[in-house]
Amino acid sequence: MASLLTLLGAGVEVAYYALDARGLEPFVAFLSLSYERNLPTWYASALLLSCALVLACIGHMAGQGREQGWRHWRALAGAFAYISLDESVGLHEHLGGQLSLGGVLFFTWVVPGLSSCCSAGLPSSPSSPGSARADADSSSSLGCCTWVGRW
């Protein structure tokens, strides 16, 4: 499905600009990967919400078994639910408007996004370098930075 949406979005934009087909403008708005509040955005939001639901189920099952780290699964579910909501309604654009930054920080939503990424990537408990826990913390930090960088 993602490949289909990518091909449709790219194809309609190429046709619109290369062929100067102004009649495709409604299709560009509906399928473009660079626009918001359209079909690709809805699809991405639905994927993120489904991830949040799976993470919530994992957190619930881990909590019932009193496994260590069940709260982290629930926090991750909450984070994915928020990102899904943000993807569908564009909260970052409205909240970013509260800051008046320029230059490199013209897109002001980067500031809270980066701080969230850094705080989420911090180890939740002390670990010694080279331990499995430290490796997992490093992987989590890298994954979070990669995700927020895409966002």
Rank of each mutant, 00 (worst) to 15 (best):
T108M: 02
G96R: 04
G113W: 07
V148Q: 10
G9M: 00
T108Q: 14
S116L: 15
S3K: 15
I83N: 03
G65N: 13
Q64I: 14
A79F: 09
L19I: 05
S128H: 11
A62T: 09
W147Q: 11
A81L: 13
R133N: 01
L4I: 09
S3L: 14
A15R: 10
A132M: 14
S138N: 08
R37L: 09
R74W: 12
Y82C: 05
A15E: 03
V148K: 07
A21N: 13
L76W: 08
C145M: 15
L8H: 04
I58T: 14
G69A: 02
Q64T: 11
S45Y: 01
G9W: 00
S139P: 02
L49H: 00
V54R: 09
S34T: 10
V12S: 04
G143S: 04
G65M: 11
A62Y: 12
H72K: 10
A21Q: 13
R22E: 14
L142D: 01
V89F: 09
W73T: 06
L53H: 13
L48C: 03
G103P: 01
C117S: 15
R71G: 11
P123H: 00
A29F: 07
V14T: 10
W109Q: 10
C145R: 15
G97L: 03
V110L: 11
E36V: 10
L47M: 08
S84V: 00
V148N: 06
A29P: 02
L47N: 05
Q64G: 10
A10N: 10
L7W: 05
C118N: 08
D20F: 09
L53E: 06
F80L: 05
P40V: 00
S124K: 12
H94T: 10
L47T: 00
R66K: 13
G121L: 01
L47C: 11
L19M: 15
L76C: 10
A46Q: 01
A77S: 14
Y35V: 03
S131L: 05
S3H: 13
A44F: 04
H92W: 06
A62M: 14
R66G: 13
C145S: 15
S138C: 10
A75C: 15
S139D: 08
S50W: 06
G11E: 01
S116W: 11
L33D: 01
Y16Q: 07
